[in-house]
């Protein structure tokens, strides 16, 4: 065996190991993004596991010089949209999961009640919710979030600004946070139709 062949074989062995290591590292972030998108811990973990399988099967197409986090977020988003179309799924509030999360900092005085913020987040139209999650919580720049969602940077900025305004308004006023009506529902009075229209826009932008 020549040196070059040896390095090649070692490289082939190392690449999957590195891929696996990088994939494992982003799992917590995938779970957090998925939880924010759908609001349910069990469904979010199903989304993440499906994302992991798809990422693993597509690992030959992953470029090691790019971001594993951004790449897997794109896959997760596609898995989520597929599930939404299939099941007409909508964001739902998981009381038990929310309790675990919001009880995490019992001694901390938060300016906003986290349970209310969680409810408000799930009432945002899907495209604003994902924009707010990507930029506000996920640490992505506007440019990265635009690449993940397949839309223009200006569109992402607008969605984040509108999402932020709606979150502040809802959490300050407490308006409708205990009801089932979402912001997008109220815009048309047709919850299912509005959700599907929002998703069609998101899918069209992607």
């Amino acid at each position: 065996m020549t040196d070059g062949q040896g390095q090649g074989a070692a490289g082939e062995r190392a690449a999957p190991d590195r891929f696996k290591r990088d994939l494992v590292a982003v799992i917590p972030h995938l779970r957090a993004f998925a939880r924010g998108l759908c609001g349910r811990a069990d469904f979010a973990d199903d989304l993440v596991q499906e994302t992991m399988v798809r990422a693993w099967n597509a690992r030959a197409r992953f470029r090691p010089d790019t971001s594993m986090k951004a790449w897997t977020f794109v896959i997760l988003r596609n898995v989520f949209l597929t599930e939404v179309r299939r099941n007409r799924f909508r964001g739902d509030y998981d009381e038990a999961a929310a309790e675990r999360i919001t009880a995490g900092n019992p001694g901390q005085e938060a300016p906003i009640h986290l349970a209310d913020l969680h409810r408000a987040l799930l009432k945002l139209p899907p495209e604003r919710r994902e924009a707010v999650l990507l930029v506000g919580a996920g640490g992505f720049s506007y440019e990265e979030a635009a690449a993940i969602t397949g839309c223009a940077v200006g569109t992402i900025k607008s969605r984040v600004a509108r999402g932020r305004a709606a979150l502040v308004q809802m959490t300050e006023s407490g308006e409708d946070l205990r009801s089932d009506a979402s912001e997008s529902d109220r815009q048309t009075g047709d919850p299912a139709g509005r959700i599907m229209a929002d998703l069609a826009k998101v899918a069209g932008a992607g």
């Binding site: 993004f33 924010g36 995490g104 900092n105 938060a110 906003i112 986290l114 969680h118 506000g136 919580a137």
Partner: peptide, 10 residues
């Protein structure tokens, strides 16, 4: 506050 809260949830 909303940004802090969002990051705490995440």
């Amino acid at each position: 506050g909303w940004l802090q809260g969002l990051r705490q949830l995440y």
